[in-house]
Amino acid sequence: MLNFESLAAIGLNHYLIVSAALFCIGMVGVLVRRNVLVILMSIELMLNAVNLSFVAFSHFSQNINGQVMVFFVMTIAAAEAGVGLAIAVTIFKRFKEVNISFFEQLKG
């Protein structure tokens, strides 16, 4: 069932294409969605797309640095998600609102 041969035929480009696709989906999500949670998720998606390309490059260039980088990114992504969600939850608690156009009133 699993054809390892064909798996092995998956080259760097395939990974990069998947990564790019994921990145674009994430970016469009950030740009067009209004829901704070969805935007945060989209950012995660973009970060992970980047992670994917890091790992792919790392694997194909036989260099461990890329995989190390991924750990950093994941940490930061976790921290960012933590802070972002905390803000989102606080705002939701206060205003019962998750649509970011609502937050424009915070603008100076």
């Binding site: 970016m27 950030v30 740009l31 067009v32 970011i100 424009e104 603008k107």
Partner: peptide
């Protein structure tokens, strides 16, 4: 207009 989403859009 201060809308970050808009800014991000222009950037992309």
């Amino acid at each position: 207009n201060g809308n970050i989403q808009r800014y991000a859009m222009y950037m992309s």
